[in-house]
Amino acid sequence: MRHGSEFSTAVRKGRRAGRQTLVIHLNRTGSDPASPARVGFVVSKAVGPAVVRNRVKRQLRHITRERLAALPSGALVVVRANPAAAGSPNLAADFDSALSSALRNSSGGGASGRRPGGPRG
């Protein structure tokens, strides 16, 4: 993804699944269903200095590239790295876990992706 509007759509309208090292926002209805899934990354300065942030982005791109076929076509996906992502050996496992949770939450018609009694909004 390259446009801020795509990031906003995925974050605001998509399903969220978080783990210790990252958060995945998945919006299945983001664009044309015939187009391939598009993925964007958010790695803030809280993760670390530029060298560390770039390393985390490279690791996330590598992990995502291997799992691109599992994403629904036309989906918009935003992967946001948490500060714990820097140097974490569990990044791929957290990615897989969060992605499967986001896919599971977005597939059902009535599933809201929120915990009962949790905050709304």
Rank of each mutant, 00 (worst) to 15 (best):
D32C: 13
P83K: 04
I63E: 00
G14D: 06
V56F: 02
R80S: 14
A85W: 11
K13D: 13
S88E: 10
S101L: 10
V47E: 04
L26I: 11
N54I: 04
I63F: 05
E6L: 09
P89R: 11
G48Q: 01
N105T: 12
G30P: 08
V11N: 04
A86N: 04
A17Y: 10
G110P: 07
P83V: 01
R15C: 05
A93K: 13
Q59L: 03
F95Q: 01
A93Y: 05
R104M: 08
S31M: 11
D32A: 03
A85C: 00
L76W: 14
V51Q: 05
D32L: 10
V56E: 11
G30R: 01
L91P: 11
V77E: 12
V56Y: 04
R38N: 07
S35W: 12
I63R: 01
V11I: 15
S106C: 10
V43D: 11
N90F: 15
S106N: 08
A50N: 01
R115Y: 05
T29Y: 06
V79I: 15
R12W: 10
A85Y: 08
S107T: 14
V23L: 03
D32P: 00
S101H: 02
R58M: 02
F7A: 07
N54H: 15
N54S: 12
P83H: 03
V51Y: 00
A10K: 08
